[in-house]
Simulated scan of single mutants.
Amino acid sequence: MIKKKRANEIFRRLARRYPDPEPALDWSHAWELLVATVLAAQCTDERVNKVTPALFKRWPTIADMATADIHEVEEMVRSTGFFRNKAKNIVASASLIINEFGGRVPETMAELIRLPGVARKTANIVLSNAFHIHEGIAVDTHVKRLSFRLGLTKHTDPVRIEKDLMPLFERKNWGDINHFLVYYGREVCNAQRPRCTECELADICPKKGVE
Protein backbone atom coordinates (compact mmCIF):
# COMPACT_ATOMS: atom_id res chain seq x y z
CA MET A 1 0.00 0.00 0.00
CA ILE A 2 1.44 3.39 -0.97
CA LYS A 3 2.14 5.74 1.92
CA LYS A 4 -0.55 8.33 1.09
CA LYS A 5 -3.23 5.67 0.73
CA ARG A 6 -2.13 4.04 3.99
CA ALA A 7 -2.27 7.41 5.77
CA ASN A 8 -5.81 8.02 4.52
CA GLU A 9 -6.91 4.60 5.71
CA ILE A 10 -5.28 5.08 9.11
CA PHE A 11 -7.08 8.39 9.51
CA ARG A 12 -10.42 6.90 8.42
CA ARG A 13 -10.24 3.98 10.86
CA LEU A 14 -9.03 6.04 13.81
CA ALA A 15 -11.63 8.74 13.16
CA ARG A 16 -14.26 6.05 13.46
CA ARG A 17 -12.72 4.84 16.71
CA TYR A 18 -12.35 8.36 18.16
CA PRO A 19 -15.27 10.48 16.94
CA ASP A 20 -14.65 13.41 19.32
CA PRO A 21 -10.89 13.96 19.59
CA GLU A 22 -9.63 16.54 22.06
CA PRO A 23 -6.62 16.95 24.38
CA ALA A 24 -6.54 14.83 27.51
CA LEU A 25 -5.36 17.92 29.38
CA ASP A 26 -7.94 20.07 31.17
CA TRP A 27 -8.04 23.69 30.00
CA SER A 28 -10.50 26.50 29.31
CA HIS A 29 -8.47 28.97 27.22
CA ALA A 30 -5.18 29.25 25.32
CA TRP A 31 -3.00 30.24 28.28
CA GLU A 32 -4.19 27.31 30.38
CA LEU A 33 -3.56 24.91 27.51
CA LEU A 34 -0.08 26.33 26.97
CA VAL A 35 0.81 25.97 30.65
CA ALA A 36 -0.66 22.47 30.87
CA THR A 37 1.25 21.35 27.78
CA VAL A 38 4.52 22.72 29.16
CA LEU A 39 3.90 20.86 32.42
CA ALA A 40 3.06 17.64 30.53
CA ALA A 41 6.63 17.25 29.25
CA GLN A 42 8.00 14.04 30.79
CA CYS A 43 4.83 13.80 32.85
CA THR A 44 1.42 12.17 32.50
CA ASP A 45 -1.64 14.19 31.58
CA GLU A 46 -3.38 12.77 34.62
CA ARG A 47 -0.75 14.22 36.95
CA VAL A 48 -0.88 17.60 35.21
CA ASN A 49 -4.67 17.69 35.53
CA LYS A 50 -4.27 17.26 39.29
CA VAL A 51 -1.84 20.17 39.51
CA THR A 52 -3.37 22.81 37.24
CA PRO A 53 -6.65 23.56 39.10
CA ALA A 54 -4.78 24.92 42.13
CA LEU A 55 -2.19 26.59 39.91
CA PHE A 56 -4.80 28.48 37.90
CA LYS A 57 -6.77 29.37 41.01
CA ARG A 58 -3.67 30.88 42.61
CA TRP A 59 -2.69 32.82 39.47
CA PRO A 60 -5.84 33.07 37.33
CA THR A 61 -4.50 35.42 34.63
CA ILE A 62 -1.35 35.76 32.54
CA ALA A 63 -0.62 39.04 34.34
CA ASP A 64 -0.87 37.29 37.69
CA MET A 65 1.58 34.60 36.61
CA ALA A 66 3.99 37.19 35.19
CA THR A 67 4.55 38.56 38.71
CA ALA A 68 4.38 35.24 40.56
CA ASP A 69 7.04 34.21 43.03
CA ILE A 70 9.09 31.61 41.18
CA HIS A 71 9.67 29.50 44.28
CA GLU A 72 5.96 29.30 45.00
CA VAL A 73 5.29 28.20 41.43
CA GLU A 74 8.02 25.57 41.75
CA GLU A 75 6.34 24.08 44.79
CA MET A 76 2.97 23.90 43.08
CA VAL A 77 4.32 22.11 39.98
CA ARG A 78 6.95 20.00 41.77
CA SER A 79 5.12 16.71 41.20
CA THR A 80 5.25 17.13 37.39
CA GLY A 81 9.03 16.70 37.34
CA PHE A 82 11.71 19.12 36.10
CA PHE A 83 9.74 21.60 38.17
CA ARG A 84 12.40 24.31 38.36
CA ASN A 85 12.72 24.67 34.61
CA LYS A 86 8.97 24.40 34.10
CA ALA A 87 8.22 27.06 36.70
CA LYS A 88 10.89 29.37 35.29
CA ASN A 89 9.57 28.96 31.74
CA ILE A 90 5.93 29.49 32.69
CA VAL A 91 6.64 32.71 34.60
CA ALA A 92 9.00 33.97 31.88
CA SER A 93 6.45 33.17 29.17
CA ALA A 94 3.76 35.07 31.03
CA SER A 95 6.07 38.07 31.35
CA LEU A 96 6.93 37.99 27.64
CA ILE A 97 3.26 37.73 26.67
CA ILE A 98 2.43 40.76 28.82
CA ASN A 99 5.37 42.84 27.62
CA GLU A 100 5.54 41.93 23.93
CA PHE A 101 2.23 40.39 22.89
CA GLY A 102 -0.30 42.70 24.50
CA GLY A 103 -1.26 40.22 27.18
CA ARG A 104 -2.63 37.67 24.73
CA VAL A 105 -1.21 34.27 23.81
CA PRO A 106 0.21 34.72 20.28
CA GLU A 107 -1.47 32.93 17.41
CA THR A 108 1.45 32.11 15.11
CA MET A 109 4.14 29.47 15.25
CA ALA A 110 6.92 32.05 14.88
CA GLU A 111 5.68 33.99 17.90
CA LEU A 112 4.82 31.02 20.10
CA ILE A 113 8.24 29.41 19.82
CA ARG A 114 9.75 32.64 21.16
CA LEU A 115 8.19 31.79 24.52
CA PRO A 116 10.55 30.03 26.95
CA GLY A 117 9.98 26.28 27.02
CA VAL A 118 7.74 26.31 23.95
CA ALA A 119 8.91 24.32 20.92
CA ARG A 120 6.97 23.22 17.84
CA LYS A 121 5.07 20.43 19.61
CA THR A 122 3.61 22.70 22.25
CA ALA A 123 2.98 25.48 19.73
CA ASN A 124 1.13 23.10 17.40
CA ILE A 125 -1.07 21.86 20.24
CA VAL A 126 -1.99 25.39 21.29
CA LEU A 127 -2.58 26.63 17.75
CA SER A 128 -4.70 23.65 16.71
CA ASN A 129 -6.84 23.28 19.81
CA ALA A 130 -7.16 26.82 21.15
CA PHE A 131 -7.21 28.75 17.87
CA HIS A 132 -8.10 26.13 15.21
CA ILE A 133 -5.00 27.18 13.28
CA HIS A 134 -3.03 24.41 11.60
CA GLU A 135 0.62 25.25 10.98
CA GLY A 136 1.91 21.74 11.61
CA ILE A 137 1.42 18.42 13.39
CA ALA A 138 2.45 18.02 17.02
CA VAL A 139 4.92 15.15 17.33
CA ASP A 140 5.24 13.63 20.80
CA THR A 141 6.57 10.21 21.77
CA HIS A 142 3.37 8.42 20.71
CA VAL A 143 3.18 10.15 17.32
CA LYS A 144 6.88 9.48 16.78
CA ARG A 145 6.53 5.76 17.59
CA LEU A 146 3.35 5.11 15.60
CA SER A 147 4.48 7.13 12.58
CA PHE A 148 7.54 4.90 12.31
CA ARG A 149 5.73 1.63 12.98
CA LEU A 150 3.01 2.47 10.48
CA GLY A 151 5.53 3.26 7.76
CA LEU A 152 4.74 6.98 7.55
CA THR A 153 8.32 8.07 8.23
CA LYS A 154 11.81 6.65 8.47
CA HIS A 155 13.09 9.45 10.66
CA THR A 156 13.48 9.77 14.41
CA ASP A 157 13.84 13.55 14.67
CA PRO A 158 10.44 15.13 15.51
CA VAL A 159 10.89 18.00 13.04
CA ARG A 160 11.68 15.59 10.20
CA ILE A 161 8.76 13.38 11.20
CA GLU A 162 6.43 16.38 11.16
CA LYS A 163 7.58 17.29 7.65
CA ASP A 164 6.94 13.71 6.52
CA LEU A 165 3.44 13.62 8.02
CA MET A 166 2.10 16.97 6.84
CA PRO A 167 1.73 16.08 3.13
CA LEU A 168 0.00 12.79 4.01
CA PHE A 169 -3.04 14.34 5.72
CA GLU A 170 -5.38 17.18 4.88
CA ARG A 171 -4.39 20.37 6.63
CA LYS A 172 -7.74 20.59 8.43
CA ASN A 173 -6.99 17.15 9.96
CA TRP A 174 -3.52 17.89 11.29
CA GLY A 175 -4.79 18.43 14.83
CA ASP A 176 -6.96 15.33 14.78
CA ILE A 177 -4.26 12.96 13.56
CA ASN A 178 -2.13 14.00 16.51
CA HIS A 179 -4.96 13.11 18.90
CA PHE A 180 -5.67 9.83 17.11
CA LEU A 181 -2.07 8.62 17.25
CA VAL A 182 -1.68 9.67 20.88
CA TYR A 183 -4.87 7.86 21.93
CA TYR A 184 -4.01 4.75 19.94
CA GLY A 185 -0.44 4.74 21.19
CA ARG A 186 -1.68 4.69 24.75
CA GLU A 187 -4.44 2.14 24.27
CA VAL A 188 -3.09 -0.35 21.72
CA CYS A 189 0.26 0.39 20.07
CA ASN A 190 2.19 1.03 23.26
CA ALA A 191 5.95 1.27 23.50
CA GLN A 192 6.89 -1.97 25.24
CA ARG A 193 4.21 -4.46 24.23
CA PRO A 194 2.13 -3.39 21.23
CA ARG A 195 -1.09 -5.38 21.11
CA CYS A 196 -0.77 -6.39 17.46
CA THR A 197 -3.33 -9.18 17.68
CA GLU A 198 -5.96 -6.64 18.78
CA CYS A 199 -4.89 -3.85 16.43
CA GLU A 200 -7.42 -2.62 13.87
CA LEU A 201 -4.54 -1.32 11.76
CA ALA A 202 -2.62 -4.61 11.71
CA ASP A 203 -3.46 -5.45 8.10
CA ILE A 204 -1.85 -2.21 6.86
CA CYS A 205 1.03 -2.03 9.38
CA PRO A 206 4.50 -2.75 7.92
CA LYS A 207 5.91 -3.36 11.40
CA LYS A 208 3.26 -5.79 12.66
CA GLY A 209 4.88 -8.28 15.00
CA VAL A 210 8.38 -6.87 14.50
CA GLU A 211 8.60 -5.28 17.96
Rank of each mutant, 00 (worst) to 15 (best):
R17G: 01
V51Y: 12
G81K: 04
L96N: 02
L165R: 02
A41H: 05
K4R: 13
P106L: 03
N173P: 00
P194D: 09
D176P: 00
D20E: 14
N85E: 15
W27T: 07
N99H: 13
I90R: 08
V105R: 06
E111V: 08
V188Y: 08
D140K: 02
R16F: 06
I97S: 01
R149Y: 01
N8D: 13
R104E: 15
E74A: 06
G103S: 11
F169K: 08
V210Y: 04
G175V: 03
M76N: 01
H142V: 01
A68K: 08
M1W: 08
Y18G: 03
N173F: 11
V118S: 08
A110T: 12
P21A: 11
S79Y: 00
A40N: 02
F169L: 03
G136Q: 07
C196S: 02
R120K: 12
R84C: 04
I90V: 14
V143A: 10
M76D: 04
A119T: 08
L33N: 07
L34P: 14
H71R: 10
A92N: 08
A119N: 09
R145S: 05
E200C: 09
L115Y: 10
A202E: 13
C205T: 12
F11P: 03
D20A: 12
N89T: 01
F148K: 12
T153Q: 03
W59D: 09
K208S: 00
I133Y: 08
G117A: 10
D45S: 02
A40I: 00
N124L: 03
A54R: 14
W59I: 08
F101A: 07
P23M: 00
T108E: 02
C196I: 05
F131K: 05
P53F: 11
K5G: 09
F83H: 15
N129T: 04
I113T: 15
H71K: 12
V210I: 15
W31Q: 11
D140Q: 03
K144P: 00
T197H: 15
S147M: 05
V188H: 06
A94Y: 04
A7Y: 08
C189Y: 05
I125L: 14
R193M: 04
E111K: 14
P206E: 13
W59K: 10
I125Q: 01
F83Q: 06
E9D: 14
L201T: 01
T156Y: 05
V159F: 03
F148S: 07
D64R: 09
